[in-house]
């Protein structure tokens, strides 16, 4: 596996160079400024917490229906991820799924994903990935199933927002109406909605943004970015704490820009190579015994008084 080692070494070097933090690093926000926290600092922050902190979980890219040598059963690994959520000592308030629920937008795939995630016994919020809008109606099946806000009403192509314990969550859709040669796209209608949605919020409201494709340019050559993502970020610029949670690239990457922290999550189905470290962004083959070390779930902790936020990525094994 000499090739594999080359990849890994290149990957480490690249990550260091880009100042992206690696797996399992805890990030916090203190006074609006992101700081990397060691495990002990994170503990101290937890002790200082007011009585109403909460936790939620992000899962992504379950690709139910995917069955290739790298992972012959994406249902099984998704079920393991849900079991991990169920076993968390602090019960999360809800789960967010940042897209590519299914492999091919088939009813059976969505049904199976729903059955599995239901085992967590928690509310679930979804945003679609490009694999979820492959039905003849270009996303109608997904929208009918998941594209609703908390009041049950669907907006636009499925974008919505909700509030939980003083935190404002915005769920965006950037996988529809993609243009030849382009990247992910939000579109003018959604950006106008976002502007109106954020208008009434005070700058001290912590904001969490959910979207499948990264909103920042991770690696445009592989389509890892959103053409009009910068316009959304401009609308978010006045807020003191913004956390952007994405999927799509099947690996943990983190970046902090001003008061905005970007995080991509692991898949529960299969890994993809680090940016540019392979011939294409297709599934990365790893030895079977290593698969679960590159799949995982993410826990996000809010500690309101200090505006502290901790993102903890845990592999399946």
């Amino acid at each position: 596996m000499a090739d594999n080692e080359t990849v890994n070494e290149g990957r480490r070097g690249a990550l260091k160079c880009m100042a992206w933090a690696g797996t399992g690093v805890v990030w916090g926000l203190a006074g609006g400024l992101p700081v990397g926290l060691g495990a002990l600092d994170a503990e101290a922050a937890t002790r200082a917490a007011p009585a109403t902190p909460f936790t939620f979980v992000q899962v992504s890219d379950s690709h139910i229906g995917f069955a290739k040598p790298v992972n012959p059963d994406a249902r099984a690994t998704f079920r393991e991820a849900v079991a991990k959520i169920r076993a968390l000592p602090d019960r999360p308030a809800f789960i967010v799924h940042t897209g590519d629920v299914s492999q091919l937008s088939k009813d059976q795939e969505f049904d199976d994903a729903d059955q599995i995630i239901k085992e967590a016994g928690l509310p679930v919020f979804h945003v679609p990935g490009e694999h979820d809008v492959l039905d003849d109606g270009a996303g109608k099946a997904f929208l009918a199933r998941y594209g609703k806000d908390v009041d049950g009403g669907a907006r636009g192509a499925g974008w919505y927002s909700f509030d939980h314990a003083g935190v404002h969550f915005v769920a965006l859709v950037n996988v529809l109406n993609l243009k030849a040669g382009g990247l992910g796209s939000l579109g003018t209608e959604q950006l106008a909605w976002l502007k109106a949605d954020l208008h009434a919020r005070s700058a001290s409201t912590p904001i969490v943004v959910l979207a499948h494709i990264p909103l920042w340019s991770v690696y445009p050559d592989w389509g890892w970015g959103t053409d009009d993502g910068a316009q959304a970020l401009k609308l978010l610029a006045r807020f003191g704490s913004v956390t952007v949670l994405n999927g799509h690239i099947h690996q943990v990457l983190q970046k902090v820009e001003g008061r905005v922290a970007f995080h991509t999550a692991r898949s529960t189905a299969f890994p993809q190579p680090a940016p540019g470290q392979g011939p294409s962004p297709g599934p990365m083959k790893v030895p079977a015994e290593q698969l679960r070390s590159v799949l995982g779930v993410r826990q996000v902790d809010f500690v309101r008084a200090g505006q502290a936020l901790a993102v903890i990525d845990t592999p399946l094994a």
């Binding site: 090739d3 080359t6 990849v7 290149g10 690249a14 880009m18 940016p275 540019g276 470290q277």
Partner: peptide, 17 residues
Amino acid sequence: LQQAFASPRALAVALAL
């Protein structure tokens, strides 16, 4: 980001792959 991957070493790895 672009510079990181424009390094000859990174390109060599990518090409080999």
